[in-house]
Design a protein around this nucleic acid. Structure first.
Lengths: 197, 197, 197, 197
DNA sequence: CATTAATCGAGACGGTACGTCCAGTCTTTTG
DNA sequence: CAAAAGACTGGACGTACCGTCTCGATTAATG
């Protein structure tokens, strides 16, 4: 029985991996996604370009890894009622988008993903998916408790809340603040609450 | 009132302008926004690169002009009731996004705009703004007719409808079809209809 | 009888001609022949580029005109003896080459002429020729007075004097000063003086 | 003794260096120095432009290297007497100037050097210098054998021979043939021969 | 004296080449 | 033997000028 690729010792240098991801994070903050170059990452990380290409293959792949690693998946604690929970989640989302280097570049990365199916797939599966799943289970529980109309598609509810937030952030045609987040959550809940209308 | 420098004769070549915009449109369709280069536009349009830089200055500026010029601002005819009108609008939006070269590249352009305030401003003012305004006036009329609750911000309603559509199109985590559009419009109207709740 | 093109009056603007030649002279001094551009001349002279191309056709042609116009054809007064006369001429040549904007650029212009037969022809005929002719007649007179061997080609003598001077100036491998000029003139005269060896 | 940065291994690709120099030589022959472009060299050599800029930095630098490498430093065998030796050298010089691609472009390169001190320095030190040195030693030997007057500067003699040849070639106001070369050598030797005059 | 056509300043035009930057690959030591 | 270092081909960038081509606006001889 021979050694398979899978069993092969990982010869990958952890030191290099760390340096690359850290350099990318820093540069992302300093110059933004567009101006980020593989060459600059390699230089900052004191790493050969080949080492980056060996393990990632493109700028977006490295950045995506930084996103997956850095962006806290910590979720704000549930509130006493569903609307408070959802509002806290929405506030956290706005906070991240506005205040963190990753958030500020998420829009560009999403733009990039429009033309790169692989990138989009990973982005949706690895980053967006888990966050969505967490909200989804909260909503499903509420539905099971009878707080939400049972005929509604939970995914539609999620999109109805986060869609408007993304929309405003992408176009920046209006302020995306806590007030707007509350307004949206309230409006949606009003429409979907069991016994409503 | 005297002749100002601004009134100076337009020496700009209409022939070149047309050729550039047409070439850009074709290439946008053929290779997409990311792979589009100024050099290729110049070659296709049989124009010197300088002529492009003289009047636009960047790839995104040219593409934006193509958008503004090409994207029909024609609006589907109003329906018998508000929900039909809004559904028709939403369907048109989906149609454009899915089927036209411009629509397919709008997402990338919007991503680009995340890091380019000038581009975003123009995109919002020239493209997005007029389309929004048209829907806004429809909603305001409905509100004045008493069909919508008078305490609601019309802009929020628009975002509540188009936000989810954009959201799904950007992430492509679920199909954006006519059914979804109807679902969203219905949900929103249900919450905002006068006498509701 | 109709007016033919040939008889047509010259409508050429003297103002423009002057401005162009002056601007060229200044720029030649400031940036040198190589860095000189038609565009810069036109800008400095406040003249359309076309006006330059209409009357000259190339950078070298304009510069050549400046040379022909500016370079004094004044010749130092003859000395009491042939050697003094020749030495004065050589000194003047060195002076011009070292101290005037034209002289400093003459080498480059000559280099240009290596690949441009028309330029070389004009340079030789208009600039170089007359200066040579003046020395030639001096030498011929000396030969007629019997001061020079009658079997010698006067042109060879001229080349024997000016060749070494140009040579040193072109390569700059050694100083081209008055001492060297005297040394060369003396050496040549020694070999060509009538009754010598 | 430790390894200094200077001792660093040469990673330069010999394959590219060769291809660049060969392409330059060919193009120099085909289109001449003036029409030669870095872009054309890169294309012909199938090399990135950057590789040329990395190691040379300018058109003239590449061409100079071609000169230094290609131009045979082989010297015609000495003749039985000094005048024959010098004549053979002069003939060789004329031959090279007229018949080889390098010679034909030497004049232009020298013109270029008028405005580029670094180029001129290299040209003088690397190309012109060695050739001159060879003649110099021949003359010094002759002087030591007592064939030449001991009070003469050998450098002046060299300039007295080659100056007139260059001069005629640069201006092309008269034919530079073997006859003229002989005439010049004879004239100079006549003036400098020991016991002469 | 008005007409009229060449010339003018201005500057846009199609092009070519520049010198730079970075992508992604290949090669040569070093640890 | 993988990683760093960095040279390599390739291609697009944005700029500078080239020489040509309109544009009205003089301008000077002619009709």
């Amino acid at each position: 029985m021979t050694t398979t690729g899978a069993e092969r010792v990982q010869r990958r240098s952890e030191r290099s991996r760390r340096a690359i991801l850290d350099a990318t994070y820093e540069l992302l903050d300093e110059v933004g996604y567009q101006a980020l170059t593989i060459e600059a990452i390699a230089a900052r990380a004191k790493v050969g370009k080949q080492t980056i290409y060996r393990w990632w293959g493109s700028k977006s792949a490295v950045v995506l890894d930084v996103f997956l690693e850095r962006s806290s998946s910590a979720v704000p604690p549930d509130g006493p009622t569903l609307d408070v929970t959802l509002k806290r989640r929405a506030e956290r989302f706005i906070e991240v988008f506005h205040r963190t280097p990753l958030g500020r570049n998420l829009g560009v990365l999403l733009g990039e993903a429009q033309a790169d199916d692989e990138l989009r797939a990973i982005l949706v599966d690895q980053w967006f998916g888990p966050r969505r799943e967490s909200i989804r289970s909260t909503l499903v529980e509420a539905q099971e408790r009878g707080e939400l109309r049972s005929d509604l598609d939970v995914d539609t509810i999620i999109d109805a809340i986060y869609g408007p937030l993304w929309y405003r952030m992408a176009f920046a045609h209006a302020e995306v603040d806590v007030a707007f987040a509350h307004e949206v959550v309230d409006a949606v809940l009003q429409g979907v609450r069991a016994g409503g209308s």
